[in-house]
Simulated scan of single mutants.
Amino acid sequence: MAFQSISPERHQLAEGPFWCDRSRTLYWVDIPAHKIWSWRYGTDRYEQWRMPEKVSAVFTTDIADTLVVVLASRVARFDTVTETLTDVCMLDEDRPNNRGNDAKVAPDGSLWVGTMDDKEEQACGRLWRITADGKKTMLLDNVGIANTFAWDEDRQCMYFADSMKGQIHRYPYPLFKDVRDQAPFAVAQQGSGPDGSALDDDKALWNAQWDGQRIVRYLSDGTIERVLELPFKRPTSCTFGGPNRKTLFITSASVGLESQLAEQPLAGHVVAIETDVSGPPSQPFRLTNKTGQ
C-alpha cells in the first residue's frame, strides 16, 4: 500500500483537506502556523497564505478567487488576489478561549462549524450553522472537540463527532436535533479519538482516528468494513479527490511527536492513496445566497 506525500514540507497540525473539482486543486490548513495551503493536482505548484490567527478550515465559494476560512474567532471571506479578509460572522465571542475547529459545507450550501476550548480542557464548544448573510444558528452546546461533518441525504442524516468523548453520532438532517443521549454510531478504539471524516459514494464513512494511526471505514449500519493502517500516529482528516475522486487525501499532525519523527517520517505531511471507491464532489460555500435558505 503506497502513500504518496503531497505536501512540500512537514506541518505542525495539517487539517481540513478540501478538493476543488473545478480547478483540480487540494486545499488544507496548518492550524498553529496560521497558514492555508493549496496544491494543483499533477504539478509542483503550491500556494500558501498566512492568516492573522489560527485557521482550521478552508473552502472554495461560488465567487471567483474567493475562499471562505474558519479562523479562531470568526468566519471570513478571503480574496486570494488582494489577500484581504472580510468577516462573515464572529464565532464564540462570549467564550474567548474557544476557537474554530472542524467545519464543512452542507448540501444546502450553508457552512457548519464546530468550536472547541483551545486548551482542550473544557467541553465548552458549540456547533454552528452559518449562511451567506452571516446569520448563525447554534445547533449544539457543550461540545468537547468538534470533528467530523458528513451528510447522507439518502438516509436523511449527518455525522458529527466529539473527539473528547471518542464518539461519532448520527443526527437527523435536515430536521436536525440533539441525539447525544442516544447510543453513538461508532466509538473509536481505546487511546484514540475520532477526528475528521469523508463519506464515499457508497455512503460509508471514512474516519481518521487521532493517536490510532488508522482510518476506519464504517458502513451505514456502523459495521467496520476495513481499517487503513497509516505511516503516522496522528491522522487528522481525509477527503476524496483526484480526476475520478478515488484518491483519498489524508492530513496529519507532527505536534507532540517530536521524539518519534525518525520512525514516522511522514507525520505532519499530507499524503494520498488510491482507493477502490469514489467520493462525492465537495460543496463550495454559497456566498451569493443572500436569503439564508
Rank of each mutant, 00 (worst) to 15 (best):
M1A: 14
R10W: 03
G16Y: 00
P17N: 04
F18A: 02
F18M: 01
D21P: 13
T25A: 14
L26K: 01
I31T: 10
W37C: 00
Y41V: 03
D44L: 07
D44G: 13
Y46C: 00
Y46Q: 00
E47F: 01
E47P: 00
E47Q: 02
Q48N: 15
E53A: 06
E53K: 08
K54L: 15
K54V: 12
V58Y: 01
V58E: 05
F59A: 05
T60K: 07
I63L: 14
D65M: 07
V70D: 12
V70Y: 06
V70I: 14
V70K: 05
S73Q: 05
V75L: 12
R77G: 05
D79Q: 04
L85Y: 00
L91W: 04
L91S: 09
R95K: 14
G100F: 05
G100H: 08
P107N: 04
G109R: 07
V113T: 03
G114W: 06
G114P: 10
D117G: 04
D118R: 15
D118W: 09
K119I: 02
E120L: 15
E121M: 08
Q122K: 15
A123Q: 13
A132N: 13
K136N: 07
L139M: 11
L139V: 02
L140H: 06
N142W: 11
G144T: 04
G144K: 01
I145H: 04
T148K: 07
E153H: 02
R155S: 11
M158T: 03
Y159G: 10
I168L: 15
H169D: 12
Y171H: 12
Y173Q: 08
K177V: 12
D181Q: 12
A188H: 02
A188V: 05
G196V: 07
G196M: 10
G196H: 08
D200T: 12
A204Q: 06
N207Y: 04
W210V: 05
Q213I: 03
R214Y: 10
R214S: 11
I215F: 13
R217M: 13
Y218K: 08
G222P: 06
T223N: 09
E225K: 15
E225H: 14
E225V: 04
L228P: 10
L230R: 05
L230S: 02
F232N: 06
K233M: 13
T236K: 02
T236R: 01
C238R: 08
C238T: 06
F240C: 00
G241E: 10
G242K: 01
G242M: 03
P243Y: 12
P243C: 11
P243W: 11
K246N: 13
K246M: 11
K246T: 09
I250L: 07
I250G: 02
L257A: 01
L257F: 00
L261A: 02
A262Q: 15
E263N: 12
Q264V: 15
Q264C: 09
A272W: 07
E274G: 01
V277W: 06
S278L: 08
G279Y: 00
P280Y: 10
Q283A: 03
K290G: 10
